[in-house]
């Protein structure tokens, strides 16, 4: 921690990152629905229009595909747009412009140009927002070569990963978590938690490894607390970046203890947890004492009923139960 360290919310850190990037680089513009006068549906872009004006903080019509498509063209011709898609659930409307255009232009054009843009969006449960405003769709983006995908869990990462994303030559899908906007933490503008692409060990532990990202890092840490009371020490790794992704430190950690779980809020089938599990299994096969387990969201649309919504994703209690079972073969009550 340096002298510049301060306490901030995740939302404030994001806003600071945008403002600092816009001050540093006149080509950075912010565009999206309600990013200007309204200040952003979750307040991330509040007051930016006052400092930077309507030409650089561009309120758009409700035209998600168009927003991303315009950002692609702007990025190819000298601007560095931050296109906001209000909810990641609207990805279906933008996937052509993102997956077929932004992601592939550098390749299809033989490297003549890149698409240096950031698509900011947010996902996840926690506000009883139901099936079309609560999903975790990172695996859709991570499946497309050409897209970088990052998902900050902490205040400091919210700031630094967004600043770093705004220096990258390729399109970055930056997925925030709606339940983290009010979370508080230390923001040290002079000190990123780790380099771009590297995971961070949020808690050390020698009995098992938990890999998570975004909000699930916090659920995993809470689970690790209760596990410690039960005599199980779990390491918690925060992946931070799904692409690029440096898994080596995590693999080393898994080899040392032979037990690993991947925790995602995203539903199980075909999800990024499967990719992580497969890679850990491939690389740590002869050091694993137990199968790598996936603790993921239920394979259901997110229900609006708060109790059902909360039950549809991994909780600290569930994670702790599963980890205890994995480590000490002590079956939980529900098994």
């Amino acid at each position: 921690m340096t002298a510049a360290a301060q306490t901030a919310t995740y939302r404030e850190a994001l806003r600071e990152a945008l403002a600092d990037a816009m001050r540093a680089d006149g080509d950075v513009i912010v565009m999206g629905e309600e990013v200007g006068l309204y200040g952003g549906a979750y307040g991330v872009t509040k007051d930016l229009i006052g400092e930077f004006g309507a030409a650089r903080v561009l309120d758009t019509p409700i035209s998600e595909a168009g927003i991303v498509g315009v950002a692609v063209g702007a990025a190819m011709t000298g601007l560095r747009p931050v296109a906001e898609i209000m909810y990641v659930d609207f990805a279906g409307l933008v996937m052509d412009q993102l997956g077929n255009q932004a992601a592939k232009i550098r390749y299809m054009f033989g490297g003549q140009t890149g698409v240096p843009m950031v698509l900011r969006t947010q996902g996840g449960t926690g506000r009883s927002a139901a099936a079309q405003h609560s999903q975790s769709l990172e695996s859709w983006f991570a499946h497309v070569p050409g897209l970088r995908v990052v998902m900050p869990a902490t205040v400091n990462d919210a700031y630094h990963l967004l600043r770093q994303a705004l220096t990258k030559p390729d399109p970055v899908v930056f997925i925030e978590h709606k339940a983290l906007y009010v979370s508080k933490g230390t923001l040290d503008k002079d000190k990123p938690d780790a380099p771009w692409g590297a995971p961070v060990l949020r808690r050390a532990g020698g009995d098992a490894v938990i890999v998570a990202y975004s909000r699930m890092v916090h659920e995993a840490l809470a689970a690790a607390e209760t596990l410690a009371e039960r005599g199980v020490e779990a390491a918690v790794w925060d992946l931070r970046c799904l692409n690029p992704m440096d898994l080596d430190p995590i693999l080393e950690s898994v080899r040392a203890c032979g037990r690993a779980a991947v925790v995602t809020e995203s539903c199980l089938t075909g999800g990024f947890a499967a990719e992580l599990s497969a890679q850990i299994s491939e690389h740590c096969f002869d050091r694993l004492e137990e199968p790598v387990i996936r603790i993921a969201g239920e394979d259901v649309p997110i229900p609006v009923a708060p109790d059902l919504e909360a039950a549809s994703i991994p909780t600290p209690g569930l994670i702790a139960d599963a980890m205890a079972w994995l480590v000490s073969r002590e079956a939980p009550a529900w098994a």
């Binding site: 498509g69 315009v70 063209g73 702007a74 990025a75 255009q101 054009f109 003549q112």
Partner: peptide, 28 residues
Amino acid sequence: ADMGVGHLGANAIVGGGIPHAVGAALSY
């Protein structure tokens, strides 16, 4: 495509390149 003559790209998705021209105009 040829950035040298301002060709921002042909497109195999019908309509796919249209917003890119709008984005270029936004840059201008």
